[in-house]
Every structure is written in structure tokens, then in C-alpha cells.
Computed example of a mutant assay.
Amino acid sequence: MSSAGPQQPERKSSRRSDRGLRNLPGFTTAAVVFLLIVLLGAGGAAIAKWNQSGTVAIAITAGAAPTTSPTPTPTPTVPPAGPGNIVANPVIAARPALMNPETVTCDANGNSGKYTVNWASDASGGISYVVSIGVSDKNYGSPQSQTVTVNRANFNLDNTDAAYGLYILRIQPMKNTVVAGDPVYRTIQHKKMTQQCLYASPNDRSPLGPFSVNAVPASTAATNNVLNVSWTALAAGTQYVVSMVSVDTPSSFGAEFTTSTSSATLTFPPYQLDQWGSPTNGGSFNGEYLLRVIPMNQGKAGDPVYKKVFYKAYDFRVENFQHQY
């Protein structure tokens, strides 16, 4: 007689079979290995999928320092030729050679009041001299002036007690009658028994009036390459010749121009910078310069004023300068 009872023995038989598998030698070890394989396989797939979907990959090598690319040294832009721009091989008008006032002699013809003034000649050609004598220290007499093309001039001073005294002699060299050199001064000692040339200070003796110049860097920034220059404004119609020339740079740099204003801006080539952006003295324009400003009015020259300019890294400054003989 059939019933649901016969299936119970089948379940018991299945459980007995499971127990039989577990009792087989090495079954537990094989099961563990199988599970590890499954888990590691899934993990590898997950890692592969993350790498494929990732947007950033970072590679780090243990023990290796990161390499940095040095900042390239910028190439400075050299100012174009033009008024106030310091450029290589500037066009500077040829001037008469510097005169040494110590070489000027004043030869008197006895006590006649006649003097022959002599000085060293300039053999460069095209040189003339404006030679003048002012009134005495007693305010006697009238100014005298003459232009000569040789290194000699003659003057007559009155041979009287009222005329005896000290007279200032000025010799202004000119090149081709238009380019002014530097004047020299001497004192003529005119006395009844003594006639000679003595030292005379050049200060405040310019025929165009007292003249001064001020020059200062435009800022204190380490990379500043601009120099502001100003000077005394003289009578209407006066023009000013501004010259800047290098004196110890590897190459010749400078500028020269004429202006009717009382100031100018001088721009040097920018400093060459190192990889950190700091100025260096690597440029052929870094060094010392001589600044000269001279007033001119209707062909008459005043006295020039000089300044020494230092254009060096962390040393951009200006000093007073006067030629020593």
C-alpha cells in the first residue's frame, strides 16, 4: 500500500551521504582552497574594474626624489634706440679732449698789463676756444671774450692801481663750433709787481648761471632699471645736452640727446634674471656709467655737471663726480 512514508528514508540517506563526504580525507582542506580561489578571483575582477573606471593614476617609486624642472632664465628685452634709452654702441658726439687747468700759463709783458695765455693744444681737429676774462674782484673793468683756433690768446688789462686785482680766466673748448667740451678756470693775479696764474674754483662760475643736477633711481625694487634725472631750469631758450656713457662694462652702452625740458628719464636694459627671478650682473651692460648734463643757449655753453651711476644687481645708485687732474 503506497503512502508518503517511503520518502523519509531518502532524506536520511542524503544526510548520511553528506556526512560521508565530510568524513573523506582532505575534504575540509579542499573546500577552504576552493573558497579562497573564488574570493580572490572576485577581488581581482573588482580591482580590474576600478582601474578601468578610475580617472587618476599615481605612480610612486620608493626611495626616488621627485624631479623639478628649473625655471628657464628669461631673455631680457633691450630698450630700442631713442631718447633716454641706454643702448649698445650709442652715437655720442665727439667732444674736445679734457683740458688740464694746471697747464694754463699767463705770461705778462712786464708790468704793461699785457698777458699771453697759453694751454695744451688738442690735435683732434676742428677745435676752437672761447677765452674770456671777467671783471676783477674789485668789480673793475669790463668782461672780455674772444674765440681763437689756436692754443693761445692775448689780453690787455689796465695798468693802474684801480685795475690791480684778481681776474677769472675761462677757456671753453668747442668741437666744430657746436659741441662743447669742459671749460677750465684760472685766476690771473694782476698786480704792479706780480703777474701770474693761480688756481680758480669752477663752482658757480657758469656764464649761463648756477646749474645743478639731481639723479635718483625711479624705485627701490630690485629689478628697477629706470633713472630719473632733473636739473636747474635756466633762462628761456636754454637747451640741455644729456649724455650717458659706460666706463667699465664689457660692451659699450649709453645714450645722448638734447632736450628743452628740465628733466629726463633714462632706461637701462633690464637685468638678466636667474632661475628664481632675481637680478644678476650677467648682462654686458652692468657696470659704471658717467652721466653728463650741459646747458647750451644760442651757441654759448654753460658748465657741465657729472654724476657717476652704478647699474649693478642690488647696487643701483648715483654719486657726485668731478674730474681730477
Rank of each mutant, 00 (worst) to 15 (best):
N225I: 02
V226E: 07
V226M: 03
L227K: 06
L227T: 10
V229I: 11
S230Y: 03
S230A: 09
W231D: 06
W231V: 09
T232M: 10
A233V: 01
A233E: 09
A235D: 12
A235S: 13
G237M: 11
T238D: 05
T238L: 04
Y240C: 05
Y240I: 01
V241H: 10
V241D: 15
V242E: 15
V242N: 14
S243D: 02
S243V: 00
S243C: 09
M244D: 05
V245E: 13
V245I: 04
S246C: 02
S246K: 03
V247N: 08
V247A: 14
P250S: 02
S251T: 05
S251Q: 12
F253K: 01
F253T: 00
F253D: 06
G254I: 01
E256G: 06
E256V: 02
F257Q: 03
T259H: 12
S260I: 13
S260P: 08
T261R: 02
T261W: 12
S262M: 07
T265I: 05
L266H: 12
T267R: 00
T267Q: 03
F268S: 05
P269C: 02
P269G: 04
P269E: 06
Q272R: 15
Q272E: 12
L273K: 04
D274E: 06
D274K: 08
D274R: 10
S278T: 00
P279H: 02
P279I: 05
T280K: 05
T280S: 08
G282K: 11
G282F: 15
S284R: 07
F285T: 00
F285D: 03
N286M: 02
G287A: 07
G287H: 10
E288H: 10
E288F: 10
E288L: 10
L290D: 03
L290A: 09
L291S: 03
R292G: 10
R292K: 14
R292H: 10
V293I: 14
V293Q: 13
V293W: 04
V293A: 06
I294L: 15
I294Q: 14
P295K: 11
N297Y: 07
N297E: 03
N297A: 13
Q298K: 14
G299H: 08
K300T: 10
A301F: 14
P304T: 00
P304E: 02
P304R: 00
Y306F: 12
Y306G: 08
Y306K: 14
Y306C: 11
K307R: 04
K307M: 09
F310D: 09
F310S: 07
Y311F: 14
A313T: 11
